[in-house]
Simulated assay, not measured.
Amino acid sequence: MEPINTTALPNASNTEQGHCKGHCRMILITLYSMVLLGGTTGTILMSCMMFKRKSQSMIAMIVLNIIVLHSILLVSLPFRLSYYFLEVWEFGSFLCRLVSSIIYGHMYFTFVFYVAIVILRLLIYFQKLQMQQLQKYHVIVLSIVIWTVGGVIFLPILFLQYGIHPSYSEQRCFEFYKDLSRGEFIILNYSMIVIMISTVVILFLIQMGVIIQLIKALWPDMWAHQEYRAQIKSFFFILVIVVCFIPHHVFRVHFIQHYSEIDNSELVLYNEIFVALTTVCCLDMVCFIGGVIH
């Protein structure tokens, strides 16, 4: 795939560079504002609730990791909102790359922790793992492994490799799609798409099978059983992945193939919206609080 010649296409430069105009900017501003407000509220309330309960279960510790991830993302959102309000990036290239890396790092780390919760509960359901065997140091080790492996794999790629295209401007940000002209990033993107979609499909089918089994066994009082409620919570995590992450990855296939075509340059704007949709998972804690109160 050949890189875009921005010099030869001055009339399309704003669109090509992902510089959102009109309705696209309003969608992004609305979406990020909603996530910032709702995500901050949910994160604070969930943190206070967990602090009061002082729960040290493995699931609770993984949720704590998710809260940390959400907090990091939420801190970066005002910078994005500033850019879409002012239409100019005023914080330098270093912070642009950092903020850009955070949104992708947040998505993949959150995905891994969601999957960890689902798999743990499935293992417990199929009696491959006993809750009594899970101790605090197990989840600490698991968290360290996930953060370390994820940091070693993703952060150097996202932060050190993305953003080196010569056409990047100091006054523009979030234009790192131009690096998709490089073969290694095309392979990386396709690999992540296949891994995420395959994992979600497999877990979705297994989880639905478990829930159907429990409904048949416990009907009509299934909500009175903790095991059923636990599996529904696991299904909630899968649903968040399907709603927030999968649309971005499905659209990414089309985007990689066509973003450099002049006639389809508006795909850059749509890509920004799908990227913003991944941040909606920060509202998961609001849903949890609502569920717990209910």
Rank of each mutant, 00 (worst) to 15 (best):
I293P: 00
I262L: 15
V243N: 10
I144T: 11
H249W: 04
C281H: 03
G42S: 08
V240F: 05
A12M: 10
F255Y: 13
F185N: 07
R172W: 12
R53W: 05
S169A: 13
E184W: 13
Y137E: 15
I197S: 03
L269E: 05
I212A: 06
M46D: 01
I206M: 05
Y168I: 06
I146E: 02
Y32H: 10
R182K: 14
S57L: 03
G209C: 06
H258M: 07
F111D: 01
N264P: 00
L74Q: 04
E272C: 08
R80W: 05
M50V: 03
L277R: 01
C173A: 15
I59Q: 05
M34F: 13
E170N: 14
N5S: 10
Y125A: 02
L45V: 10
L180W: 06
G151V: 09
L158H: 11
L36S: 02
Q161A: 02
S101D: 04
I153C: 06
E266N: 09
Y162Q: 07
F111Q: 03
M285V: 07
S47C: 12
V141S: 12
V152C: 11
Y108C: 05
R252H: 11
V112W: 12
E261D: 11
F51C: 09
A12W: 07
V210H: 01
S47T: 15
C282F: 04
L267R: 00
Y162C: 04
L64M: 11
W219M: 09
W147V: 06
A60V: 03
S198Y: 10
L37G: 01
C96S: 15
I262R: 08
I124V: 15
Y108I: 10
Y259I: 04
F237Y: 15
E2P: 05
I4G: 00
G150C: 08
S260W: 02
F126G: 01
I102W: 02
K52W: 08
A116T: 14
